[in-house]
């Protein structure tokens, strides 16, 4: 098919693949190991690659003094609600962009692309003023509204790729049977679209979960902070407490990593379906 592999070729290939895997996994391993050392052992020579004594002290400290549980709940609520809302709204816009031809269509796609090109910092000041007027500063609902808007352009483009891969004979048959376009979308397309919807939701969720700058700008009080905002607080004071930081990093990474592991196939399909097919 792609030509025979020589023994030497295979050796080079698997050395490279193995090396890259090591390079990819090692930083994650290292932060996890750091977080599981006793706070004093982190700064002890020689550096231990496999600690003799494991400790959960960094984690217990995180929930004791820094109220990390509140931040986790805030992030979970905001990312889940915003991710789901954005996915639902993007379903509708993606459907129209995949199935209809109309004059302003390319302008709409361009408008979606432009949002990805403009650095969000240009909008932060006015957004803060707008949210003040709406009385939504330091308010989780307000942050959710903003995140929904942030997620919509990309998940629309992503879902559009999935819709285009589904033959429209499917919903046309349903519409000939007397269903409206809306109910055809929900009863016939939704089940087929499940991988796409899962991928879009996970992508949105992870984006909201990881978002830093908007959250720093809009959330002031400690009880409303999301995880990235809290992490940012850990480094503002120039002396970083690496024990707490590593534990917090692990707790931040773990949920999104599990989601990606669960859905990496769907996400890959979502990313490539739009760009690669002719």
């Amino acid at each position: 098919m792609i030509g025979k592999e020589s023994a030497a070729g295979r050796a080079v290939k698997f050395t490279f693949l193995g090396g890259w895997l090591l390079f990819t996994v090692f930083p994650l391993y290292w932060i996890a190991v750091t977080s599981l050392k006793a706070p004093g052992d982190i700064f002890r020579f020689p550096l231990a690659y496999w600690p003799e004594q494991w400790s959960l002290e960094n984690y217990s400290g995180l929930f004791g003094k820094a109220d990390f549980g509140t931040y986790l709940v805030n992030s979970l609520v905001v990312a889940t609600v915003a991710g789901a809302t954005a996915t639902a709204i993007s379903m509708l816009s993606a459907y129209v962009l995949a199935r209809f031809e109309f004059r302003s269509k390319s302008a709409l796609l361009m408008a979606a692309l432009v949002t990805q090109m403009i650095p969000s910092f240009i909008a932060l000041g006015p957004l803060y003023l707008l949210m003040t007027d709406l009385r939504l500063v330091d308010n989780r609902f307000g942050l959710i509204l903003v995140y929904v808007a942030v997620c919509i352009p990309f998940s629309t483009v992503m879902l559009r790729g999935f819709f285009e891969n589904i033959p429209d004979a499917l919903e046309e048959a349903a519409m000939i049977d007397g269903l409206s376009r809306f109910s055809a979308l929900f009863r016939v397309l939704l089940p087929v679209m499940r991988p796409g919807i899962i991928a879009a939701f996970i992508f949105n969720f992870v984006n909201c979960w990881n978002e830093l700058f908007l959250s720093v700008t809009l959330m002031n009080s400690d009880s409303n902070k999301t995880v990235p905002t809290a992490l940012n607080g850990f480094i503002s004071s120039f002396n970083i407490d690496w024990g707490s930081m590593s534990a917090a990093a692990v707790l931040t990474i773990l949920p999104t990593m599990l989601l990606f592991a669960f859905a990496s196939r769907h996400i890959v399909q979502g990313l490539t379906s739009g760009a690669v097919k002719g």
Partner: peptide, 23 residues
């Protein structure tokens, strides 16, 4: 293998900065 090398993508840029800052 593909799932494993996909992991960096689940992490925010900010946090990646922190991981490497520590390393």
């Amino acid at each position: 293998y593909q799932a494993l090398i996909f992991f960096p993508w689940a992490i925010s840029g900010f946090l990646i900065g922190i991981l490497f800052r520590w390393m």
